[in-house]
């Protein structure tokens, strides 16, 4: 066990995967000599060489497209997309090529590729550097989508994602990159399993990635007011771990989903629909959503008003309690 930042945990997880399996290749813009703009890959080129930690041309479609070619040869590429808003040039390669390849090949060809995307806002960045685009990929059959929130999960989930024989979109919460936490040597948790961080009998908050900490803070504040509010860290978006969500709904009867993406057709909408279908008689209020507004990510000076805050989460909990 050791204490690491989320960046450090990702770095350690990548190092372990590369040491364990020489088919693992990292590729992306500025990840080699520089170690990535967030330093997630720092030191790895020195350790594993320029062939395995590849500074690519500045071309996201090329990064994913060539990763597909490498995977066809038996490699296990891990692509870094520098910022969430830069993934769209690769959208076709991800959605039409990577995601569909196995189905198109009649199950003959699998592509074990991980696409790492630093995601979300809260870092005062210029436009295109703060987006939450998980719904696009979760809506695409053939992809797996996961989102880590803590150093421990970052360390274990990146290794599990690399071991998966399917393509995995791996979200990293960039405003939590420097948060520190305990990292255990082993994990008995499967990649596609949600985690109950806190049980609650009045309401359950469901969050992933950067909003997990927000949800925990809100749950603590609610406890001070005498409410028992639980928190589920989704960890996996495709597939969703519905059984954990259903169990928590049965206990609390109220669910508030919190994410940075806009609520319109977001993951919260899917969770609300799924829980309504399976837990209708256990619900004491409608499933509520707290997320971004349906507008392009705003300029940095107003992002605090745009992002789901503890106050907005508490207001939703109040609304659910008083329904």
């Amino acid at each position: 066990m050791s204490t690491m930042s989320l960046v450090g945990a990702l770095n350690a997880g990548l190092r372990k995967s590369m040491a364990d399996d020489d088919r693992v290749i990292l590729m992306g813009e500025d990840i080699g000599t520089l170690g990535g703009v967030f330093r997630v890959t720092a030191g790895l080129r020195e350790e594993f060489g320029a062939d395995r930690v590849v500074d690519t041309p500045l071309a996201e479609s090329g990064i994913v497209g060539t990763a597909i070619g490498l995977a066809l040869r038996g490699y296990r590429p891990v692509c870094e997309i520098q910022f969430d808003g830069f993934v769209y040039p690769a959208f076709d390669q991800i959605v039409s090529q990577l995601a569909k390849f196995r189905a198109r090949s009649g199950g003959r060809v699998s592509l074990p590729i991980v696409i790492r995307i630093p995601v979300g806002g809260g870092i005062g960045a210029v436009e295109h550097h703060s987006e939450s685009n998980e719904s696009y990929f979760a809506h695409t059959a053939g992809l797996r989508v996961v989102s880590c929130a803590t150093p421990d999960d970052a360390f274990h989930m990146i290794q599990q994602a690399i071991q998966s024989d399917d393509p995995v979109i791996f979200y990293e919460p960039k405003r939590r990159y420097w948060d520190k936490g305990e990292v255990l040597d082993q994990s008995d948790r499967n990649l596609h399993e949600a985690r109950v961080l806190r049980e609650g009998s009045d309401c359950t908050l469901v969050a992933h990635g950067p909003t997990v900490a927000t949800a925990l803070a809100a749950a603590l504040a609610a406890a001070e007011d005498g409410f028992s509010v639980g928190v589920v860290d989704l960890r996996t978006i495709s597939p969703l771990d519905l059984s954990t969500l259903e169990e928590q709904t049965m206990t609390s009867g109220r669910v508030v989903v919190v994410h940075e993406a806009s609520t319109f057709l977001g993951i919260g909408a899917e969770i609300a629909a799924a829980i309504s279908e399976s837990c209708f008689y256990s619900l004491r209020s409608p499933v509520l959503r707290v997320g971004a507004f349906n507008m392009p990510y705003p300029p940095a000076k107003v992002e605090d008003a745009f992002l789901p805050s503890v106050d907005r989460v508490l207001a939703a909990v109040d609304h659910a309690m008083n329904y």
Partner: peptide, 24 residues
């Protein structure tokens, strides 16, 4: 012989990635 590409040109990148492996 790989599957036929229907979204035109996408497979030129797959070929290029495949060639990265050949070179390595």
């Amino acid at each position: 012989l790989q599957m036929a590409a229907l979204v035109l040109g996408t497979h030129t990148l797959h070929a290029t990635g495949y060639a990265v492996g050949a070179r390595m």
